[in-house]
Amino acid sequence: MTDILLMVFAAIAILGAAATAIQKNPYDKLISLGMLFAGVIPFVVAGGYLDVAISLALIVPITTIILLQAVWRCRL
């Protein structure tokens, strides 16, 4: 059962990565990056590394917030 679930998450992560590469608007890129992260974290949890999952869940949003200060300078 978990194998089928992980295939679904792999599909979500690949879709998110492709959308991050393709889209033009920088905010859309950040939203797709959030989708990529949502697809990746169940792999960390299925491996049993809950501490890694907690630290990732805190580091990734902070990285996004710092990246927003760079996106702020882009012209839409």
């Binding site: 949890v45 809950l50 869940a57």
Partner: peptide
């Protein structure tokens, strides 16, 4: 996927982090 006592903290941390994002 992983019913472990620290799973509550992991789920809450993930949800709060993504909400903040």
């Amino acid at each position: 996927i992983l019913p472990h006592p620290m799973g509550i903290a992991a789920a809450a941390a993930y949800f709060v982090g993504s909400t903040l994002e």
